[in-house]
Write a protein that binds this DNA or RNA. Structure first.
Lengths: 340, 340
DNA sequence: GGGGGCTATGGAAACGTTTCCACCGAGGGG
DNA sequence: CCCCTCGGTGGAAACGTTTCCATAGCCCCC
């Protein structure tokens, strides 16, 4: 009774009294097999508990039937949504997904790409952390790469699916400006950061609205808890006349909320707060936080579709932009008077 | 210049003027190769951009060098932590991880297991949703399974790594009782649910403390947003004399907070709230929520270690229990007077 | 000085699949 | 009545590894 090793086509063929080619045809669906033969083969397979080995098939077909997915951190809500989207799409296409987290480290990203290539994945979806230099090698080495959630400006040849961050920041900025705010702090310009899409959108929108941009109000911060907190505290203490804060990400938003609470600033009476990323706590916060929701799930889903389903259309017409949505809650109020 | 197909051992061997066995030895590390030969091989490999195919190796070795990970939902914070833990451990052991989300559907779980077996994964880590019947088949079919985050009582043969939920609920209950609360509502007893560990811990602790358990205060709720909200609203409206609520999960906790706010109950003056799962928003909430932190990352990490590193010790001595931590914040206060 | 290890190497056989090719029989059109 | 086609089938060769076995040289010790 001890099925030492899993059954193979050969076992099934012998047991069903047919050739191995026939067994293969039954399971791969290709070629023609008569109904009675097919039944016999299926019965034998069931009896032997046979499951085709993806390894054997992959070797022959030269593809593993899986894709790779690289994100900075699976516990980040946006990344998690993105992962879920990729999984959902991959499931419908019958591919499995090898997920790994690079922790924002370009070297680890490169290492992961290397491993994925060894696995002969059919393609890679990445939310890249490094810059172009880090990914040129990877792109050359792998059949097909799609960027999701972030793109590398210098690599237009790699297709990408993005949330419309610029649009999101624009509506947030317009919303705050529409409430009368003029001295709006912006948290989150990554100084050496590659794209700075959000910062540019902020500056651009203010400019278009005729509101002067004070350099002092645009503060850089890596999206790490301590750095974010330091940046928020610095801004709010340095400039007591700031009436609104726009945080370019949920970590920054969290910092802004915490710092405001620490400084005994009432939200939104003393200072309005809004942020990019409509994470779970935005609604639970008191007051609930106005935020821009980025369609993480859809970004992942579309990226996977692009990778597997439309290799032809890939990379044409620049990045696919998915709309964000402004979710207005209670954390932003009309400009009343100066703080302090 | 067109590298039509990726280079193979054969190409490298020819280019380096050695046999394929030698190339294999260089890359797999086994056997002995003289230094000069090794150099020649490595140089040739670099020149040809050679990467060993995991498919070929897997076929020969009869293992893919990867593991499968099944969770209900990657966007759930606890699951995400668990995934991160598994990834971290797998990385150190050089294995890749195929992740999939079953959405709490036993049929989908079974389907995923099937696919993973076809991939010839070295093992499977699962946070199971179904009951024993659903997993007996899977366990039989797969070499090694480890449950993480939840176990199936009827399957002691499958090793598991769990957060000490009972301990967590106990400390939460003791904490609330210690503040003087006697009429404590419990949100989250899943009625048909298999294990009900948390509910039992709640009842048991109250019993030990000599506090009578009122059946009316123990309310069932699936961990879905709408059901949770309904349960919380039902409890707080039906029993205006409840002075504290213990939510058995973050979804339930969220519902409790929202309902309390809706009913204009001040926290903690009118009602104390505490929950299992120290998610991000617990700290951001106003007042910040007292919660029990479950070590999701460690659960994943240990499960992976158990699966890959200690196949011998597996399953001995029952589930591995990892301690939870009570994080006291501002949402629970001493019993003052009756509400209303 | 010869035998017995020991290191470095190559050939070849697996691993489990898909698929090309060949073959066989039956049926239909010339 | 023969040839051609076509559906159904089996054999065998790949796919890229690892590893067993054999071989060749070498040093060392008796």
């Amino acid at each position: 009774m001890a099925d030492r090793r899993p059954a193979t086509v050969k076992d099934v063929a012998a047991s069903a009294g047919v050739g191995i080619a026939t067994v293969s045809r039954v399971f791969s669906g290709a070629g023609s097999v008569s109904a009675p033969t097919r039944e016999r083969v299926l019965a034998a397979a069931r009896a032997l508990d046979y499951r085709p080995s993806a390894l054997g098939r992959g070797l022959k077909l030269r593809r593993s039937g899986g894709i790779g997915l690289i994100v900075p951190d699976v516990t980040d809500p946006f990344c998690a949504e993105l992962v879920a989207g990729v999984l959902a799409c991959a499931r419908t296409l019958g591919e499995h997904v090898i997920v790994d987290a690079a922790g924002g480290d370009p070297a680890r990203e490169a290492e992961i790409v290397e491993r994925l290539v060894e696995q002969r994945v059919d393609g890679i979806i990445a939310l890249p952390a490094g810059d172009e230099a880090d990914w040129r090698g990877a792109a050359r080495v792998c059949s097909s790469v799609v960027f999701a959630g972030r793109t590398l400006p210098g690599m237009p040849d790699v297709p990408s699916v993005l949330a419309d961050d610029a649009g999101g920041v624009r509506s947030l900025t317009e919303y705050l400006a529409g409430l009368g705010h003029r001295r709006i702090g912006f948290l989150g310009a990554t100084p050496g950061g590659p794209s700075r899409v959000r910062e540019r959108a902020f500056r651009g929108t203010l400019g278009r609205l005729g509101v002067p941009v004070e350099e002092d109000l645009v503060v850089a911060a890596r999206p790490a808890r301590d750095a974010a907190y330091a940046a928020a505290a610095g801004l709010l203490q340095r400039r007591a006349d700031v009436t609104a804060v726009l945080a370019a990400g949920h970590i920054l938003g969290e910092a802004a909320v915490l710092v405001a609470r620490e400084l005994d600033l009432r939200v939104p009476a003393d200072v309005s707060i809004a942020m990019v990323d409509d994470v779970a706590w935005a609604e639970l916060c008191d007051p609930p936080l106005t935020a821009v929701a980025r369609p993480g799930h859809d970004v992942g889903y579309r990226a996977c579709e692009l990778l597997l389903r439309e290799p032809a259309r890939r990379g044409r017409g620049g990045p696919v932009l998915l709309p964000t949505e402004l979710v207005v809650r209670g954390s932003c109020g009309p400009l009343r008077s100066q703080r302090r």
